[in-house]
Amino acid sequence: MSAPFIGIRGLSKSYMRGERALPVLKNINLDIAEGEFLALMGPSGSGKSTLLNLIAGIDRADEGSIDIEGVDITTLGEASLTAWRSDHVGFIFQFYNLIPVLTALENVELPLVLKEMSRKERKERASLLLGLVGLSERVDHYPGQLSGGEQQRVAIARAMVTDPSILVADEPTGDLDRASAEEVLNLMRRVNEEFGKVVIMVTHDPRAAEKAHVIRHLEKGVLNAAPH
């Protein structure tokens, strides 16, 4: 059997609450295959967001390893991890996290500033991605002038613009109405199917989770057994 796209082994993480260490993740072992759409579910405080943050390289584990495409990201230093994130991970947040002072186009363009790319190329690529999420008409709008669903689509375009291999989404539909949520989920599904991106989504919503290939439940920091 070939190595999984993402291989997590013995991953643990606790937070300090005053003097006491509060375990959030306990000995997590998880394999994610190439092209997989994974939904992480579980009650609040189960550790699903923490697991997502660790895979995305924005938080540090206490123990264990996260092997992604042959690199154990837990061994990377601060600067290397930052560079790794910009190359491999696209982020979709519950509250979109667009920069309010930048237009839709500038928001999508922002991650490309880190790449060796001319201004013209950046603009073209950002416009292309906005077209892909159906927002060609909204390039010059500021986040405040867009609906929640539109903002999340801009965020998806921003997450995709650097052509990362992994898309992480933390409650991407948590702040949206039913119709917008459906639109955003379909878009994520498309990204997964057409572009072969690994999508890892944390969600409360069973309807959202239905879009995924695999649903895993976390409870009190422990991953439930994989379905057979």
Binding site: A56, I58, T82, S86, F91, I99, L110, P111, L114, R158
Partner: peptide, 11 residues
């Protein structure tokens, strides 16, 4: 949160 976003994006 903007700062967090920029850092997550790779800045």
């Amino acid at each position: 949160s903007e700062i967090g976003t920029l850092r997550a994006l790779g800045f």
